[in-house]
Nucleic acid binder design. Structure first.
Lengths: 237, 237
DNA sequence: TTGGATAGTGTCTTTAGGTCACTTTGTTGA
DNA sequence: TCAACAAAGTGACCTAAAGACACTATCCAA
């Protein structure tokens, strides 16, 4: 048989295959707290429970898996988060009552200011403090996915400034240090932190200053190469 | 409608969904070269081309995605590799002529001695030097998946001794250093390398010595906690 | 027993990061 | 107007990890 004949007769539903979905752990930082976006499930199974934003691939609309996540996140937040990175894929027979199920998970970061108003209009989405998650009973294995996302972000805090994407476009080094401290769960030395960031050479002085009490701080912005525009990490080499 | 009713009537084939497969980049080290296991495709599409070992989830036999990879690897090598780790998931409309396709990719490591004989009996599998890959035309996007796996392994060489899983159970520090040098593409300082490994405290002296020319070297083995038995990394926290 | 080959170590230098006190620069209210 | 306060930013010293490289150790073979 030729490949043409094979492809002509190919029936995608001839074989049983797992259910495939996509989920996103969207983090933000506000008032000293790390928060995750949760969505109330409006369909079975686990209807009524809160869980991660996500869903199924739209074979027509989506060209890649990243298109799917971004589409789903935009539905809930109104915007495309500036940072999206694949986290892990989980697939087994027990995580979904419907049967064998696979979910491709992503972590995403955004400044809460970017989507505050839109989330308020969407009644089925809300920010939840990571600290308050323990009490909640989330859908599927979403709680452990969030834990994995948080762990990944913690690692990033050790050797990168990726957590900066949880902040507004212009931010101070003190802000950034606070985010890192929350992620790492311990205070950092101001000097060391600043030295590391200066060496990395990933941010640039905007010339503006913050207006809090005390000495005003320089407002920085991420350099264009680490640009604030849908930085998608999946197989870039 | 109750959840019970929903689940009773649930039809997994009611919606179109992407094709889901699993692929593995199995590395080994031999005679100063990094090698990857390739398999000749016996079915359409891309029949006759060489590609990564992998396949579809068996909803009956496999409990998790990792079961699927391991089953596929065992079919080709005869054994379960001591190190298997999820790499990345790639899903888009263009990678497979059959349509929307998602593949969950893994990297795995094994000593070539463990499977030499079995691979010789399986005529459709062979080790290929990483260096020789450029010339080859592999199936699907497998060449870029291998590149990603190699890049991941290179990162591991910087701060771990995971590459030790490409070596036999008992190995010398010189062997391990050679593997790391090939991965990093540059010579390493013997003293620094050994200091780093000693500090990590992940290997233990077997009491045996190697018998090459020159001064015999101490044979080490990975400590049980970094045990040589199907160390699967996916979402361990 | 000596020379070749490779394993393994001693030691100085370099660099990244920790610590902490000090200076700077703004606001606020007597 | 100017001290007191608060937070930003820096100087300087110390420690730990890694780089560089020469040196010693231990085997085999001729």
């Amino acid at each position: 048989m030729t490949e043409e004949a094979y492809l002509r007769d190919y029936d995608p539903k001839a074989f049983d295959s797992p259910l495939l979905s996509v989920d996103a752990v969207l983090f933000t930082y506000r008032e000293g707290q790390l928060k995750v976006l949760l969505v109330e499930r409006s369909n079975h199974p686990e209807m009524g429970k809160w869980g991660l934003p996500g869903g199924f691939v739209d074979l027509e609309a989506d060209g890649t898996l990243e298109d799917t996540v971004i589409r789903k996140l935009q539905e809930k937040t109104g915007v495309v988060p500036p940072y999206v990175e694949q986290l892990s894929t989980i697939g087994n027979r027990s995580r979904d009552k419907r049967g064998w199920s696979v979910t491709v998970c992503y972590t995403a970061l955004i400044a809460h200011q970017e989507c505050e108003t839109h989330i308020d209009t969407v009644s089925d989405a809300k920010w939840v403090n990571l600290k308050d998650l323990e009490k909640l009973d989330l859908a599927f294995d979403h709680k452990s996915i969030i834990a994995a996302g948080r762990e990944r972000l913690k690692q990033k805090a050790l050797y990168s400034i990726v957590p900066a994407y949880t902040l507004p476009e212009k931010f101070t080094l003190s802000d950034l240090q606070h985010v890192h401290e929350v992620l790492l769960g311990k205070p950092l030395q101001k000097k060391s932190f600043r030295r590391r960031i200066e060496q990395a050479d990933l941010i640039v002085d905007t010339g503006e200053k913050s207006a809090e009490k005390g000495r005003p701080a320089i407002l920085y912005r991420l350099k264009p190469e680490a640009s604030r525009h849908t930085f998608i990490r999946n197989l870039e080499l």
